[in-house]
Design a protein around this nucleic acid. Structure first.
Length: 886
RNA sequence: GGGCGGAUAGCUCAGCCGGGAGAGCGUCGGCCUUACAAGCCGAAGGUCACAGGUUCGAUCCCUGUUCCGCCUACCA
């Protein structure tokens, strides 16, 4: 195969590897912080080091890559900052599972060796997702790749922690937090997934000390009763006036606990009695504070009952529930058990049921930070797109609660706080202090806990650019242009980056937040391993190529709607890639070297038409991408390439290209073809980078990488040619009319026909005369005759178009019944349209109140329809006449 | 409990500021026309969920209803 011809079908795999290597080797992804040129930056949502590329990543990164490649073509100095997230709990879990397989665990190793083990794991497997992103074509500036645990980012984390602590925005305290007994760590509220489960509501009677009676409470978690320290009723509740007792006996534990009155209690729920378990329920914790009640922690950190649970100690919490219920029932204190559907919190990492637990943890005081994050969006400093997500963003930030940031795991940024063994002073500092700042004791013990993974993620837009140093990178590229993300991490990540960015950089981290949809399976189900409906992006890429896959994602990425992915759809777009490939193949059979575009005046109609359409496609692509309307851009390009370039232009240009016309015509067509292919490749490149680069290098006169090309001029700078568009429109109608007759009348394509054309205006006559060859060729006619008479050959089929009425003589072939049916069908359509138009024009209110240009438009419409109706009727009548006489 | 989104052709979905309902796939009929059968030409197919309202005019704006999906919340 010679260098300037193409294979018959596009084979993506070898091409993709070759060009990706080429781009990387030539530094085409590199940002230049010291260069002029408008800076455009995006920071990647860092995938977990444990991650493997899934559909969500594929969509997210395809959209980012489209934007980055587009901005480069527009001449911007683009930084796409890549990296990965250490993913504290997730990664620790992965390595712990590996250790379990080896018959050991982290406690046997000890902290230091375990952490070393995780680093080793990361060295070996952590790069997988990066390789996968490269297969997707992601044009990140890989030389700058960062990791949330690397030295620079860790410094940024410590700096932020220390500053927030000094500013009173980080504190430590004893509160009810969400505890995962499986991961054995605290979780933030956000990290708890609430799921509906079928449970029971147990009604338990707590008898009075004197025996008998008592107060009945209802609970879904009876095992927590072992830690009850009061029973509460509403002070307004008539049922509990004058009880004659101020306490009850806690069953099974035989502990006397007080009856308290608190407005929190909902009188309408159950019996109006509430058991109070301060150590295992956030509301009860608050009630206990108000009433100065003690706390009894009966569930331990491992999910088993603690010593405080007396004889139940050591039982698993769920096992204990069964024991408690049985014993209560035996004691006659279980009044009833009703099935109850309620939500239970689960750990977002391991799915174990979360236990609210009293615990000493570190918190970020979020409210002051949230206020600024709200204001920034309200003031338009950051736009959220689509706008509907702003409401969700505001709602969460307005009701934000303090953020529990400490985790009882080993993999992560260890909290930079040291406790003095001598005086108990807590010192918070960037580096370990040598001695206690208060008493001078050197026995300092660092806090064991690490920080929530999302704490370091919150700093990502500036920590990756070198903060807290004042780097050239920050100066050039902060704030970033846009953050592209799924809505699932709007709170986890986006809102927190807003808070931290505003606090530490005094500027928003991004001007736009583009929130894209979720990728689901073809039935709209969320993809999950347990459902077995996961489609692996890499398998899709293997089978159909990266470009087809990317184009599919872009084409389905309509704002505010989930993407339903199925292999079938990718297949459809693979056909598109192949169509482009073959169009190029055809073009390259003719185009030999670059030619200047001749004057518009010298060009043929089809040439002028396609250039005008190219100009529109360019403007539409730019408009759509500037507005994050990826699907609009993809649809516009698809339609342009397939239905305008391939279906009409290439077909129209064939005679000239094949040398059937004069050489000047051939040269002109070649120049236009070159221009159309050249610009179209650039327009498509952000979406389908590989195939466009491959074709680009076969295109004579196209220099270097397509990545360095300039986006075509759109709008005023490019040829606007409404005349060509209108004239070509008339011809397309004429040709389609003839094709319709052929198809409907069942005439084989091989049979050459002749047509008699009656133009409606002298201009149309001239047009058809001058474009005679084009019509002959595209309508597959033997001959075309132009007539001033409306007389029609006897046995002929008719097509009425806006520019001309066409008669196709079908002597000996015509099936009169069929033609009658065809015209009748068309007439019925016109009658229907005419009726609705007439209704409008008979309406005085419409004439008086509608915009004048609309009225004019409707009048013109009516005129056209009436004209067409009249012509069809005449022909229908004649057909009837002939039919009856023949 | 609060909030958000969706309902348009057989399927999957576009449809920005109200003014003659679109695409892809699928279906039907005809074609190996020297770029492409992963293709070409032609065609059929819709009460724009339902009920009201605003308007000269509503798939589009407003209200309500039904169904589906999602987010969020400390009612045991």
């Amino acid at each position: 195969m010679s260098p300037d011809t193409l294979e018959k079908a596009y084979e993506p795999h070898e091409v993709e590897r070759r060009w990706y290597d080429f781009w990387e080797a030539n530094g085409l992804f590199a940002a230049r912080e010291h260069d002029a040129g408008r800076g455009y930056s995006i920071v990647i949502p860092p995938p977990n080091v444990t991650g493997v590329l899934h559909m969500g990543h594929a969509l997210n990164n395809t959209l980012q890559d489209i934007l980055c490649r587009y901005r480069r073509l527009r001449g911007d100095n683009v930084l796409w900052m890549p990296g990965t997230d250490h993913a504290g709990i997730a990664t620790q879990n992965v390595v712990e599972r590996k250790l379990a397989q080896q018959g050991t665990d982290r406690h046997a190793l000890g902290r230091e060796r375990f952490v070393a083990e995780v680093w080793a794991w990361r060295e070996k497997f952590g790069g997988a997702i990066i390789h996968q992103l490269k297969r997707l074509g992601a044009s990140c500036d890989w030389a700058r790749e960062r990791f949330t645990m690397d030295e620079g980012l860790s410094r940024a984390v410590r700096r932020v922690f220390v500053d927030l602590y000094d500013q009173g925005l980080i504190y430590r305290g004893l509160y009810i937090i969400n505890w995962c007994p499986r991961c054995r760590t605290a979780l933030a509220d956000l990290e708890v997934e609430h799921e509906e489960v079928d449970g029971n509501l147990y009604h338990i009677r707590y008898p009075f000390p004197q025996g008998g009676g008592g107060i009945t409470v209802a609970t879904t978690r009876p095992e927590t009763m072992l830690g009850d320290t009061a029973v509460a009723v509403n002070p307004e509740d008539e049922r509990y006036r004058g009880l004659g007792a101020e306490s009850v006996i806690l069953p099974l534990m035989h502990r006397e606990i007080p009856i308290i009155r608190d407005g929190y209690v909902d009188m309408s729920f159950g019996t109006g009695g509430l058991k109070v378990t301060p150590a295992h329920d956030p509301n009860d914790f608050e009630i206990a504070r108000r009433h100065d009640l003690p706390s009894v922690k009966v569930i331990g950190d491992d999910g088993r009952m603690s010593e405080a649970a007396g004889r139940f100690a050591g039982l698993d919490r769920f096992e204990c529930r069964n024991h408690v219920v049985r014993e209560l029932s035996d004691a006659g204190l279980l009044e009833k058990t009703v099935p109850y559907r309620h939500k239970v919190g689960h750990c977002y990492r391991c799915k174990a049921a979360v236990e609210p637990n009293l615990s000493r943890q570190w918190f970020v005081r979020t409210q002051p930070l949230a206020e600024k994050a709200i204001a920034a969006v309200k003031e338009g400093k950051t736009r959220i797109i689509p706008e509907s997500w702003a409401a969700t963003y505001f709602d969460w930030l307005e009701n934000i609660r303090d953020w529990c940031i400490s985790r009882q795991i080993w993999w992560g940024h260890q909290i930079p706080a040291w406790t003095c063994a001598g005086c108990g002073e807590v010192a918070v500092a960037m580096e370990a202090p040598a001695v206690c700042p208060k008493c001078g004791d050197s026995r300092l013990v660092q806090e064991e806990d690490v920080l929530d993974t999302w704490f370091s993620s919150a700093l990502w837009p500036f920590s990756t650019m070198g903060w807290p140093e004042e780097t050239a990178l920050l100066k050039k590229f902060y704030p970033t242009a846009v953050l592209v993300t799924g809505f699932d991490i709007l709170f986890f990540w986006v809102a927190r980056m807003m808070m931290m960015g505003l606090h530490f950089m005094q500027a928003v981290p991004f001007r736009d937040v583009y929130v894209h949809a979720l990728v689901r399976d073809e039935d709209g189900q969320k993809m999950s391993k347990s459902k077995g409906n996961v489609i692996d992006p890499l398998e899709i890429i293997d089978r159909h190529g990266t470009d087809a896959f990317r184009f599919t994602l872009a084409a389905f990425a309509a704002q505010g709607r989930d993407v339903k992915m199925s292999e079938k759809r990718v297949e459809g777009y693979r056909h598109f890639i192949n169509k482009l490939w073959n169009a190029a193949r055809f073009a390259l059979m003719h185009v030999d070297r670059r030619r200047e575009l001749p004057d518009l005046k010298e060009l043929g109609l089809a040439d002028r038409w396609i250039l005008a359409r190219l100009c529109r496609a360019t403007a539409e692509t730019a408009r759509a991408l500037d507005a994050y309307r990826f699907n609009d851009a993809a649809a516009a390009l698809y339609a342009f390439v397939w239905h305008e370039v391939c279906d009409w232009y290439l077909e129209a240009a064939k005679p000239a290209l094949h040398g059937k016309l004069d050489d000047a015509a051939r040269q002109r067509s070649l120049a236009v073809l070159w221009r159309v292919l050249h610009d179209t490749l650039i327009l498509l490149h952000p979406f389908i980078p590989f195939v466009t680069e491959e074709i680009w290098h076969k295109l004579p006169g196209a220099e270097g990488s397509i990545m360095r090309a300039a986006f075509p001029a759109d709008g005023a700078a490019a040829p606007q040619d409404p005349t060509a568009e209108a004239e070509m429109g008339v011809l397309i109608e004429v040709i389609s009319g003839i094709r319709n007759i052929r198809g409907e009348m069942g005439i084989p394509p091989g049979m050459a026909l002749e047509a008699l054309v009656h133009p409606v205006t002298p201009a149309a006559r001239t047009l058809i005369e001058t474009q005679r060859d084009l019509v002959l060729n595209l309508a597959r006619l033997r001959d075309i005759r132009i007539t001033d008479s409306t007389d029609r050959p006897k046995a002929s089929a008719t097509s009425v178009t806006p520019g001309a009425t066409i008669f196709v003589p079908l002597e000996g072939i015509i099936d009169f019944a069929r033609e009658r049916e065809r015209l009748g069908k068309e007439l019925a359509k016109i009658d229907k349209e005419l009726a609705s138009v007439a209704k409008k024009l008979q309406n005085h209110d419409f004439l008086a109140k509608a915009a004048p240009e609309i009225v004019v438009k409707v009048r013109d419409q009516q005129q056209e329809l009436l004209d067409k109706q009249r012509k069809i009727r005449v022909n229908l009548d004649k057909i009837r006449e002939y039919d009856s006489t023949s």
